[in-house]
């Protein structure tokens, strides 16, 4: 696989800022449950812990490329340039939301930025991304599609069916499997035959005769180089790659599931709440990709501590503005519920 574009200092700092923006956005979402009870409804899933993988992957895309994600979908559009104000307003169900308040947290879409639409059903987005890659192949303009999904999704038929066709048709797509160790509340080794046999999940690629690679998804440069090489391969017509990006989800799967009237909040991570393994969670915190990357950039001289603090302050202000904007945006007119049923 050919190497992607070399990362210069500005690009590295940009990557750090995007990681921080995702972390700060997700923190604000989480805090909303406490600071503004009732504003966020339903089920919300956060990307903290996945920032390096998200940014390292999205950074490989060209302007015409596209991507699909899962219900845990806040991070990708942020790194791609979607307005966090519109995203927060969507998560608050408001008129100025990215999807006009109709989609909510699980269904973000920003086609103008290559983010065509998000399914909340596990693995459902994999064939959608594969279809978009087929469209790209037909168009013949060198576009590539990134398909993000979780380790749990790889046990759906939609995963196997899609990867087979993508390999068979040499579609321009990269499958980024974010393995955060848990499918909802179930540990990977409890539901994945490869993991249970001590193998990485990227071995699944073998069944479809495509390259499969497992990487440390907490290192944005490793992610960038690996996904970048796979994107270059896809763009050159050589077909798909499966990248298993290993990480640790730093929040619980989602906020508690409860009927109206019960205040929603984020419980402790499953390692603590369910499996009684706080040491596992503590170890994961030690590997938190956001402070780790900051430390690395400062140590390498790419960033001074002052510059890093300036970035942090800017990001905090930006996400505070997103919260304020979301809270101040009115609810949509109720009739808009019927406006977008058909095209």
């Amino acid at each position: 696989m050919s190497a992607p574009v070399e990362l210069d200092r500005d690009r590295l700092v940009w990557m750090y800022e995007q990681m921080l923006r995702i972390r700060e956005f997700e923190e604000r979402v989480k805090r909303t449950f406490i600071e503004h009870p009732g504003v966020i409804r339903g089920h919300t899933h956060l990307a903290d812990g996945a920032e390096a993988s998200i940014v390292g992957s999205i950074a490989t895309l060209g302007p015409q490329d596209q991507f699909f994600a899962t219900y845990r979908c806040h991070g990708y559009p942020l790194a791609r340039g979607t307005d966090p104000k519109a995203m927060m307003a969507e998560i608050y169900g408001r008129k100025d939301g990215l999807c006009k308040g109709i989609g909510g947290s699980m269904h973000l879409a920003d086609p103008s930025n290559g983010f065509l639409g998000t399914s909340g059903i596990v693995a459902a987005g994999i064939p959608h991304a594969t279809g978009a890659a087929w469209a790209a192949q037909i168009r013949g303009q060198g576009q590539v599609v990134l398909c993000f999904f979780g380790d749990g999704a790889s046990k759906q038929g939609a995963f196997s069916e899609s990867l087979n066709i993508a390999s068979l048709w040499k579609l321009p797509i990269v499958y980024v499997m974010e393995n955060n160790g848990y499918n909802v509340h179930t540990r990977t080794e409890q539901e994945d035959a490869n993991r249970a046999h001590g193998e990485d999940l990227s071995v699944k690629a073998r069944a479809f005769s495509m390259p499969g690679v497992t990487i440390d998804g907490r290192d944005p440069i490793v992610v960038y180089e690996t996904v970048g090489a796979a994107v270059a391969r896809a763009r050159s017509g050589e077909g798909p790659t499966l990248v298993e990006s290993q990480m640790y989800r730093l929040s619980a799967h989602g906020n508690i599931i409860a009927p109206p009237g019960v205040p929603l909040h984020f419980p402790e991570h499953e390692a603590i709440e369910k499996f009684g393994a706080p040491e596992e969670y503590e170890a994961a915190l030690q590997g938190d990709p956001v402070p780790a990357f900051r430390g690395r950039l400062v140590a390498d001289g790419a960033l001074t501590a002052d510059e890093a603090d300036t970035i942090a302050a800017r990001v905090r202000d930006e996400m505070q503005a997103a919260v304020t904007f979301g809270l101040e945006s009115p609810f949509p007119a109720v009739e808009s519920a019927l406006e977008f049923v058909y095209a």
Binding site: R41, G42, G93, I102, G104, M106, A258, P259
Partner: peptide
Amino acid sequence: TAGWAGQH
């Protein structure tokens, strides 16, 4: 219908 939106 507690904010679970379009697919749940």
